[in-house]
Write a protein that binds this DNA or RNA. Structure first.
Lengths: 251, 251
DNA sequence: ATTGACTCTAACGTTACGTTATACTTTATC
DNA sequence: GATAAAGTATAACGTAACGTTAGAGTCAAT
């Protein structure tokens, strides 16, 4: 007679999973204690093993239940059908991978860029490897700084949705700014936006001091990876931004 | 200026999909007409093409949005990471397929059945091909009968959940019956269950007359595929069931 | 004027749990 | 024996990408 966590640890699934299996009737405990605790026996363990076997095969739980419960269900046939399905899936995967490969090859080759617009953003050949070193490089350069540690601290608990919201806010500021490029980097509204972006960084990453902000501005134009991305808001926007921040940070 | 269905038909997605993309902000129509209709332009069509490209790559919509919207998102890197992910996925698929193959091989070979209990239900070597001919065979034999046509008619609109409910009901009756095997096929309760099973068939498939029911009983013991499955409720249960139905159908 | 084709929003259903939130029980510790 | 730490329970929301009704308004053709 095993309690739920013992079973869970024994076979390597979560307690929640067992709760779920109970809920959908896939695996009921042998009995309930007076306190409501679920108790499992060897029989249930065996069944659980079977369930996990089929699950490994990516058979949906619904069908596992039928396979194990329904005497009229032709299991051999089901398994075969399922295999065919997996084969098709793999073929599809192969094609997709080929497609990605050829896309990347085209990018690297630089010739025959029929899809130039579509793939333009991928640009440059070695950016790929550079990117791999990117984090390490950053860490080496700035790892000891207060800003870096602070940022690590603040961001480590962000969830996907948080990131998206933050990025959206940041992008929004840039968009607004990009609308005013004609007015020049010293425009009052532009300067307001520059200020709010600094605040944005401080709020979400680290205390963005004037020095840091100024350094960021330099990076925006000196590092091609940034320049390229920022220019998505408009040609030359990176330089505009650089100037705007520099003006803001003057004293 | 294209209306939503025109766009949908043009690129081969559903209207609902476009609604969805609008909802999550992945693809907004260029404008709304006064009547609320969505209107799309070439720009949106282009973007939609890009979306579909990444979707083909199995990139989640969330990420597609970021790829297309967020200038700071490193797309080349993302694509590469994604490719690696797909490669892993394929490897896993390969392993699973191998696993299924070896399982089936073991079954066919009949030797080394270390997992005998687990795979026992798959049984017999050629059942596989037989199964393929099964439907055709049935159709040839009974295709002209009223019961067959009636069943086709009744069942063609059943959904997965319907099937499951029906099978569950059927199994339940058998289970109850299996509990009473000791009392013999003529037991009152058993006979009640036999009657309710006939009704069950009539309700869900076709009018199960006494003759048909009697024929079914014969099939249960003469066709190994049925016998094997039915015996899941207990050893010899197929024979018990046969006798019970025969007794019920006597006159 | 009446169809039939098209459009809209709203909301549930799908898969297999993860993740809180809240509350009770058991076990370990002091 | 009191308290804290673990374990257990139920309930309910969240996830991905739409499909599928359901109810209602709009447009074009008969």
């Amino acid at each position: 007679m095993l309690k739920i966590k013992e079973v869970a640890d024994l076979v390597g699934v979560s307690v929640r999973t067992l709760h779920h299996y109970d809920q959908i009737g896939l695996l009921k405990p042998e009995k309930l204690e007076e306190n409501g605790y679920r108790l499992y026996n060897q029989i249930e363990l065996d069944r659980l093993q079977q369930i996990l076997f089929f699950k490994e095969m990516e058979v949906p739980l619904r069908m596992i239940k039928r396979i194990l419960d329904d005497p009229f269900f032709d299991q051999m046939h089901a398994l075969k059908v399922h295999k065919d399905l997996l084969l098709k899936k793999r073929d599809r995967l192969d094609r997709i991978i080929d497609s990605i490969n050829s896309s990347m090859d085209k990018l690297k080759g630089g010739r025959e860029m029929t899809d130039q617009e579509r793939f333009e953003p991928f640009g440059m050949t070695e950016i790929e490897e550079q990117q791999k070193k990117y984090e390490a490089e950053i860490k080496e350069k700035y790892g000891h700084t207060k800003a870096y540690k602070e940022s690590q601290q603040k961001t480590k608990n962000y969830k996907v949705t948080d990131w998206e919201k933050i990025q959206q806010e940041g992008n929004h500021i840039y968009e607004e700014m990009a609308k005013r490029t004609a007015s020049g980097p010293q425009d009052r509204k532009v300067q307001e936006l520059v200020a709010s972006y600094q605040q944005h960084i401080t709020d979400n990453f680290y205390e963005c001091t004037t020095e840091i902000y100024s350094g960021l501005a330099d990076m925006y134009v000196s590092d091609a990876r940034f320049t390229k991305n920022i220019d998505k808001f408009g040609e030359g926007f990176a330089f505009f931004l650089h100037d705007a921040i520099k003006f803001y940070c003057r004293k």
